[in-house]
Design a protein around this nucleic acid. Structure first.
Length: 929
RNA sequence: GGGCCUGUAGCUCAGCAGGUUAGAGCGCACCCCUGAUAAGGGUGAGGUCCGUGGUUCGACUCCACGCAGGCCCA
């Protein structure tokens, strides 16, 4: 009767669960890390002399729950920091939030509805602050749940008092440098509500307008020619004509001059059909570029000149191909005007009424002016055509009336020409940009950017710290004034600006530096939020003692080339003449499997909170890490499923190794490398190779390489070979046999090395591994307090690895052959097979050299090696499968002898020393008693 | 419309200073095991390397033009 020898074997034992159950288990680790004060312990490295690495967090906007884009960004940052921690360095991470700005105002206004009008600015700001705080708390918990480690109890907020004061400090420095100035720039303006509007407060509706084609006489050498030559412009906003300063042509388009008999007219050649009325003669063709620098007579004010310019945005789809330019009334007009140094004329007041600057039209409301202008042009014979047209036009979100573009006084930082462009471009060159093309993007953006408009007509933000004399209008820009404001902000925050009188914000007994008046008024504009976030490196890196300036790294999505990378660069270059970062790493955006952006309408949105709830943060982190973030990162259900599979494989590989270490005590059972069994030397050599790849990939921030390589190692080297082939020695040998201890030493090493390498990517799971690895927990309470393990180069035996790679090829041949063995029902497992291998040359030499390991590598005790390819054992028949692999020939048949009921090997000595078992097992059983 | 970027098996990635039948893992199919077991092992099928031209003896790799997608502008 067969006896069960199970209890005499060293079968794997572990509490490490196969089922990850991350959604439930991860929060416990978060709790544990908090209890052991993990982050504080890491931060205490600040007092040692280890290298410091500062990754400066770009602040997300404090609105809404986090989306996958946030998750991608913060997980990458976390991996970077954890990598540096694992190198033994000091790598503080201070998360931040961008708290001010229009979107929060908008949300609060929506909640308030009509009540908003009854609120003071100060009261309104209070509500905005509450709103921001609410979302900071939510997002904080969500980021923490992701496993992101950092100073969560003391993040930086752009609404912190000290932070707000820093805005003034930086403003003062830039002001002193002489690059801050006041100028005019068009903004959306509702002349019904008399208020400035942000882009997001605009709604587009169809509106019917009068469209005009107006003639501007060409001057210069064509002045007083007969018949006169006219450039014909097309516009739907007649009221902007008083502000006209230029006519824009498309530089590469072709224009024709037509003789109508009475006059000569210029249109884009391609739009001739739309404009020719009668039997006109085309007398000349010219490129648009020809008109650059030419002068035209203003159609409304004959004494004024309208300059000929060229611009790529000129449309040739409809109209005349000539665009009337009024920099005071249009964004494009303004930008092209800046390029040509055109004046910004803006003769419209808050209520939409023409000022004296509009000459004969002064006092008219713009709607009425439209009609007057048409009449005027008709009378002068300068109206070429008049029509009606319906088009999409911006309207005020609140009162639903049409809005206008209207230039108003704004604050600027001079960037172009004599501004700080040169310094910024030099600063860019000193930074390492990853990926490499990133430098081109930032460079061209800085090269082409206009001056930076830093003022906004809003309530929720930091005021531009300027105080004017009420009497003479003088800006009070003495140091003592700025310093006083800085001091007040530091103590009471920017709110003080809205609560206090101008006088209270000035030094005691202050009087105007020009007229001695003591009456003052405060600037009402606030800073652009990009200015605020752009000074974070000053407000955080220079002020918080945990960190230092400049940052080692900024890490954000590629959209930040225009945003934060640039605003930070400009403030830094302006004050310090260098970039605030040494290295900038950019990642792509989250897209779906087909590479399309996520949108509700496409139904492809992945919610990180849901993923963490269903699969766990480590799976989400792994998905992020497994993907090459230098371009867009795809996330979908299938991708998460695949990642989940890979995660499970890694987890189970650890579980198996842990299971075989249950009785391993590294103090007592450790086997030094030199004394290890060859098979264990082999896997340690492979591990060494892997560690080389992984550490290089970490240093280069190529995390997907790490995930792929480690995963492949787990499936290929470990599960597919090493772990499979070890079972006999782990299970059947005496528990304390040298072979088993050698293998356990290898397993232990692999676990530690891999757990540490994976800790930055899978912090929860690797902590779990650490807690189950014998002895580790008493050594250090968390894997995250440990440092990467290095494998000495001496553990890498190249000739052994080369030999064994060849042996593995032979193993592969055996596996192929064995497929047929299974089919023919000759044997079901290799254990119950006899394998004959014929070979010659180098292969034969290697096989002979490692003869004693061939049974282990192949997986059966019955191996016959020979050089004779034509021996009888290689004759195929009903009980034997034979395959030829060139230099190697394989034959497999059923094993001889009997199956040992303990180790399941087939031998001829079963029952000799003891019933049912082979002699090897019989001896072990004696030892075990 | 402009600038920058991406496009290799169903999925995630390798590869190529241009050179034999383009690789891996997952997934899938089939088989084996039941002493890693809601595990494990083996074998196999999957690719017009986005398309079209060009350079070259030879292109997935270089160039041009497209197409699709992303970010930022307009």
């Amino acid at each position: 009767m067969a006896r069960d020898f199970k209890e005499t074997l060293n079968l794997p034992k572990t509490d490490f669960p196969m089922k990850a159950d991350l959604p439930h288990r991860e929060p416990n680790f978060l709790k544990m890390w908090e209890e052991i004060k993990l982050y504080d312990k890491l931060m205490s490295r600040a007092h040692t002399d280890v290298p410091k690495y500062v990754l400066h967090d770009g602040p997300p906007y404090a609105n809404g729950d986090i989306h996958v884009g946030h998750a991608l960004n913060k997980v990458l940052k976390d991996i970077v920091c954890r990598y540096h921690w694992m190198k033994g360095e000091y790598a503080p991470f201070i998360p931040g939030w961008d708290c001010h700005g229009q979107p929060i105002e908008h949300q609060v206004e929506k909640q308030l509805g009509e009540k908003k009008n009854d609120l003071s600015k100060a009261k309104f700001r209070e509500l905005c602050k509450k709103y921001a705080e609410k979302y900071i708390d939510r997002q904080r918990e969500q980021f923490k749940r992701l496993g992101v480690i950092g100073t969560w109890d003391k993040p930086y907020l752009t609404m912190d008092l000290e932070y707000e004061a820093t805005n003034v400090e930086v403003f003062k420095k830039l002001y002193r440098k002489g690059i801050v100035y006041r100028g005019k720039k068009p903004i959306y303006w509702c002349y019904h509500d008399m208020t400035a509007l942000a882009e997001a407060e605009i709604e587009y509706y169809e509106k019917e307008s009068t469209s005009l084609k107006v003639k501007f006489e060409l001057l210069d050498e064509f002045k007083n020619v007969a018949p006169p030559i006219y450039g014909v412009i097309w516009t739907t906003t007649a009221w902007t004509l008083p502000a006209n300063v230029a006519l824009a042509f498309h530089p590469r388009a072709e224009y024709s001059i037509y003789d109508t008999g009475e006059e000569r007219l210029i249109f884009a050649t391609s739009l001739a059909d739309e404009n020719i009325k009668g039997d006109w003669k085309e007398i000349q063709k010219v490129k648009g570029l020809f008109f650059e620098g030419k002068k035209f007579k203003h159609a409304l004010f004959p004494e004024r000149i309208s300059e000929g310019i060229v611009a790529d945005f000129v449309s040739l789809a409809t109209g005349t191909g000539i665009v009337h330019i009024a920099p005071g009334h249009g964004e494009e007009d303004y930008l092209v005007g800046e390029k040509y140094d055109l004046p910004v004329i803006m003769p419209v007041d808050d209520k939409g009424v023409f000022t004296d600057e509009a000459g004969i039209f002064a006092g008219l409301q713009i709607e009425e002016a439209n009609q007057k202008i048409v009449e005027f042009l008709e009378k002068k014979g300068l109206l070429f055509e008049k029509g009606k047209m319906s088009h999409s036009y911006p309207h005020c979100w609140r009162c639903k009336n049409p809005v206008i573009f209207r230039a108003t006084e704004q604050w600027f930082i001079a960037v172009k020409k004599d501004g700080l462009k040169g310094d910024a471009l030099d600063a860019i060159k000193a930074v390492k940009w990853i990926p490499r093309w990133s430098v081109n993007r930032i460079t061209s953006m800085v090269e082409e950017r206009p001056d930076w408009c830093i003022s906004r007509q809003r309530a929720w933000g930091v005021p531009i710290p300027i105080i004017y004399c009420r009497k003479c209008g003088m800006i009070q820009d003495k140091d003592e004034v700025f310093d006083r404001i800085i001091q007040v902000f530091r103590l009471e925050g920017a709110d003080s600006w809205f609560r206090k009188e101008a006088k209270e914000l000035l030094p005691a007994n202050y009087s105007c530096s020009r007229c001695r008046s003591q009456e003052f008024r405060k600037e009402e504009d606030i800073f652009d939020v990009w200015f605020e976030s752009g000074i974070s490196h000053f407000a955080v890196l220079k002020k918080r003692e945990e960190v230092s300036w400049p940052a080692d790294m900024y890490l954000e999505g590629s959209d930040q080339h225009r945003g934060w990378f640039q605003s930070s660069l400009l403030t830094s270059a302006g004050v310090e003449k260098r970039a605030p970062y040494r290295e900038v790493l950019t990642h792509g955006f989250i897209v779906d499997e087909q590479g399309r952006k996520m949108s509700k309408s496409l139904g492809n949105v992945v919610d990180p909170l849901e993923v963490m709830d269903k699969m766990g943060a480590d799976v989400l982190r792994m998905a992020v890490a497994a993907s090459d973030y230098s371009s867009d990162v795809a996330i979908s259900d299938q991708i998460l499923e695949r990642i989940s599979d890979a995660y499970r494989r890694i987890r189970n590989t650890f579980r198996f190794m842990l299971g075989n270490l249950y009785d391993f005590d590294k103090e007592k059972n450790w086997v030094i490398f030199e004394e290890m069994d060859a098979i264990d030397k082999f896997i340690i050599g492979k591990l060494y190779n892997l560690s080389e790849t992984v550490s290089r990939a970490y240093a280069e921030c190529r995390y997907h390489t790490i995930v792929h390589n480690i995963h492949n190692f787990c499936t290929g080297e470990l599960s597919g070979f090493y772990l499979d082939v070890l079972k006999d020695r782990l299970y059947a040998e005496h528990f304390d046999s040298p072979k088993r201890r050698s293998t356990q030493t290898a397993l232990y090493t692999i676990c530690r090395v891999l757990a540490k390498y994976l800790a930055p990517i899978l912090p929860f799971t690797m902590e779990e591994v650490w807690q189950h690895l014998p002895g580790c927990r008493s050594e250090l309470e968390s894997v995250h307090l440990s440092t990467f393990e290095t494998i000495p180069e001496s553990a890498f035996d190249k000739s052994l690895l080369d030999d064994w790679d060849r042996l593995l090829e032979v193993r592969k041949y055996v596996m192929k052959t064995f497929e047929t063995v299974k089919e023919k029902n000759i044997a079901r497992t290799l254990l119950e097979s006899k394998v004959s291998i014929a070979s010659e040359g180098e292969t034969r030499t290697i096989l002979t050299k490692w003869q004693e390991y061939i049974p282990v590598i192949i997986g059966t005790t019955q191996i016959y090696l020979t050089t004779a390819f034509n021996e009888e054992v290689f004759e195929e028949n009903d009980t034997r499968v034979v395959y030829n692999f060139g230099a190697v020939k394989i034959a497999i048949e059923h094993a001889e002898g009997t199956k040992c009921l303990r180790c399941w090997n087939w031998t001829s000595d079963v029952g000799e020393k003891r019933e049912d078992v082979c002699n090897r097992c019989a001896e072990i059983l004696v030892l075990l008693g």
